[in-house]
Every structure is written in C-alpha cells, then in structure tokens.
Amino acid sequence: MNIAFSPCPNDTFVFHAWVHNLINGAPAPSVTYADIDKTNHWAVAAKGPEILKVSYAALPWALKEYTLLPCGGALGRGCGPLVLTNDAPFASLEGKRVAVPSEMSTAYLLFRLWAAQNAPRGVGEIIILPFHEIMPAVRDGKVDAGLVIHEARFTYPSYGLKLIADLGDWWEKETNLPIPLGAIIARRNIDTFSLVHWIRASVEYAWANPDASKDYILHHAQEMSEEVVRAHIQLYVNEFTANLGEEGYEAVITLLDRAAQEELVPRINLRELRL
C-alpha cells in the first residue's frame, strides 16, 4: 500500500506509528514524502498512490477517483495562512504582486475568497513560489506581499515581516467554523473501513507516546528547531485529526460551497464527501 504525505511535523507525527509497523494488523505502507503542491496534482490527474495528503481546495477535482477520509488531516482554529509584507500594511492589495505557494492550495483558495471582499478590483500579479522561498522574496522586495503557511506563522518576525491579514482569523469570524487545510484521501477501490481504523490508531499512538516519533519527525523537519516543531504539531494535530465530526464536515462543505459560488472550484455533490 502506497501513501504520499508531506515531511511536515504534523504529518510525520500522525503517520509515524503506521509507517513504523506499530499498529496491530496494519501493513506498513510505502511512503513518498512530497510537497502538497505535488500531491494535489497527482490527485487531480488520478496518477498518485492509493492514499494521499492533499489540500481541501483540490477535492472537487479529485473526488471521481478518490474519497475523503474522516481522519488524518488538518483542520483547526488559529492556524490559517498569513498575508505578509515587509513594509507598513497596505490599505489594499489591489495592483500588488503577491507570492503564493500553490494555485491549488487551500491557502490560495482562502486568499481568493478574502481578496474578493478586500481587493474587489483584483490584486496584481500572482507569483507561484515554493513556500520556503516566499518570505525571503517578500523581505528582499521581489514581491509586494506573500501568502505563507505552516511554520511561517512562528518564524515570519525573524524576516522582519509584518502581518497584513490572518486568513484563518478572517474565516473563523466569517463562518464560526474551523479552517479546513489538509485532507487525507484514498482511492475508491480500497477498504476504507480498515484504513480509517489504522490511521486513527496511528493518531492515538502518537498522542499516547509523544516522544516515540521525535527522531523521525526531526529527520524530516527541514532544519526546524524543536520548539517550532512542537508548536507546529500542537497547532495542526487536534480532535479533527482523529475524527472530522459534524463540525469538521460542515467546515469543509462551507468552504467548497462558497468557492463554487465564486466559481473558483467546480460545483460537486457535497454529500459525496461523507463515507
């Protein structure tokens, strides 16, 4: 069984037990570590492995071949993408050059929903950059602003950058719902009952044995400090990781419905999201 997820601490924390054959009855999967932009495109092209971590924004294009699993992903509060600049905050992003990590990311989808309200005449040029290049590009004046994710929430002050907007905070005030970020999907011909059990067991093992995965996480953590790694995990691994639940499904449905209304994603049968 093949799975692809990112080397980010939340993913390695969640999947450590399963990957290391610590879950009774679960076959150890073959893992590909890949940036979310790659897994999104694999899912949309239906050319990826059986199990993938993708952006919720990519779901409408992936659902023909894949189904959404109710565990293993990332939803939460206080964990949304940030819009940053190296100058005093702009009155508006209209006409500005903005770097974003992926055209198919949930971060960029949220940015477009936010910009429809806050820059109605449109931003200027959108520049696609790997997420680790965005803050240096903003700092060095190569772009006017940058959309950042993950551990950038904790590290952007060290680049001398200033916050324009917290899109997670904006989303929560708009909807009173958690922000859907990353989803775990599986090909429709897989036994999802067993798969969900194994992933939930891996999450529970991680919570019960928080130090067991430390070496594995740090090995893949791209030189993050241990303090940033801990903060990253605490922010993105929560009750929704074990079970989307009614509130989690409502958040996903609300995001994709709003995006479809703005013609940013294809309209889908939202009932298909539930197993």
Score class of each variant (00 low, 15 high):
Asp169Asn: 14
Asp166Asn: 13
Asp191Phe: 06
Asn209Asp: 07
Glu174Ala: 12
His16Ala: 05
Leu270Phe: 15
Ala45Cys: 03
Ser158Asp: 14
Lys162Gly: 06
Ala45Asn: 00
Ala62His: 01
Ile185Val: 05
Leu69Phe: 07
Ala260Arg: 13
Ser213Phe: 02
Thr32Ala: 11
Ala208Pro: 03
Pro70Arg: 01
Ala186Trp: 01
Ala57Phe: 05
Gly48Thr: 02
Gln117Asp: 13
Lys162Phe: 10
Glu50Gly: 15
His197Tyr: 09
Glu204Lys: 14
Ala116Pro: 07
Ile179Phe: 06
Trp114Ile: 03
Ala4Glu: 07
Ala116Glu: 13
Ile126Val: 15
Glu272Arg: 13
Leu177Gly: 03
Arg267Lys: 12
Asn10Arg: 12
Val229Gly: 04
Thr106Phe: 02
Ala137Arg: 09
Leu147Asn: 07
Ile128Arg: 14
Gly76Ser: 09
Val196Ile: 15
Gly80Val: 02
Lys47Glu: 10
Asn269Glu: 07
His20Ala: 12
Leu84Glu: 13
Ala119Gln: 06
Val229Pro: 00
Ile179Val: 14
Gly182Pro: 01
Ala201Asp: 15
Ile184Asn: 00
Leu235Trp: 12
Trp198Thr: 01
Glu246Asp: 14
Pro27Leu: 12
Val237Ala: 07
Ala165Ile: 02
Asp169Glu: 15
Tyr33Leu: 06
His16Ile: 04
Trp170Leu: 05
Tyr108Pro: 05
Val138Gly: 04
Gly72Asn: 02
Gly160His: 02
Phe90Lys: 06
Glu247Ala: 05
Val44Leu: 12
Arg258Pro: 06
Pro178Cys: 09
Val196Asn: 08
Ala91Met: 08
Glu125Gln: 11
Val148Lys: 03
Pro7Gln: 11
Phe15Leu: 10
Glu65Phe: 02
Tyr159Arg: 00
Phe131Trp: 07
Val44His: 12
Ala208Trp: 08
Glu246Asn: 13
Ser6Val: 04
Glu262Gly: 00
Ile164Tyr: 13
Arg153Glu: 11
Arg139Asn: 11
Thr39Asn: 06
Ala45Phe: 01
Val14His: 13
Pro101Gly: 03
Ala231Ile: 00
Ser30Asn: 13
